[in-house]
């Protein structure tokens, strides 16, 4: 202990501030933890979702594959439809996410007649090469995401999306 004497006024100040701070944090802590819960929630492991796309029918031309799955949004469960652009590359199957890396619109293969061999986003004319590489000079800042792919009985299964591994 040091020799500095704590005056009665200082002592009361410290205790009141301490007790007050404790009570305030006891009030605020539950509310803040409540509000940020979605940030701290662990991400659910991605299951593979079956599609009706036969792998043997895939060519080097990307085709649109729609798939449905049960989505749990808090207390609300629903069946939602997702989309992937799928093509064959040698003996590998590539499935790209249609979500534009600019601002999240939906891209189409050959959506722009002037660029028949590229993905095109109609919102701000973003373009991507077939492997998802964004075309320099267009708005997107990165390549299209890629789905994890699994093949069973010639049917295509799609998993979680991950950053593009092809470019």
């Amino acid at each position: 202990m040091s020799n500095t004497r704590v005056s009665r006024r200082q002592f009361l100040n410290y205790t009141l501030m301490g007790v007050g701070g404790f009570m305030a944090s006891g009030m605020l802590m539950p509310m803040i933890r409540f509000a940020v819960d979605p940030v701290l929630e662990a991400g659910a492991a991605g299951d593979y979702i079956p599609t009706s796309q036969k792998v043997s029918e895939l060519t080097e031309e990307p085709v649109r594959v729609d798939f449905t799955y049960d989505q749990v949004d808090g207390w609300y469960e629903s069946e939602v439809t997702g989309t992937a652009w799928v093509y064959r590359e040698g003996d590998k199957v590539v499935a790209l996410s249609p979500v534009c890396k600019h601002l999240g619109c939906t891209v189409n293969w050959a959506g722009d007649s002037e660029h028949p061999n590229q993905f095109f986003c109609p919102c701000h004319a973003g373009r991507y090469e077939k492997n998802g590489q964004n075309v320099p000079g267009t708005p997107p800042t990165g390549p299209l995401d890629e789905f994890d792919v699994k093949i069973e009985d010639d049917l295509l299964y799609l998993g979680a999306t991950k950053p593009n591994t092809l470019v």
């Binding site: 940020v36 940030v39 808090g74 609300y76």
Partner: peptide, 11 residues
């Protein structure tokens, strides 16, 4: 924090 979910924009 805004969307309340990492991927879904929903309920």
């Amino acid at each position: 924090l805004l969307a309340g979910d990492a991927t879904i924009l929903g309920a």
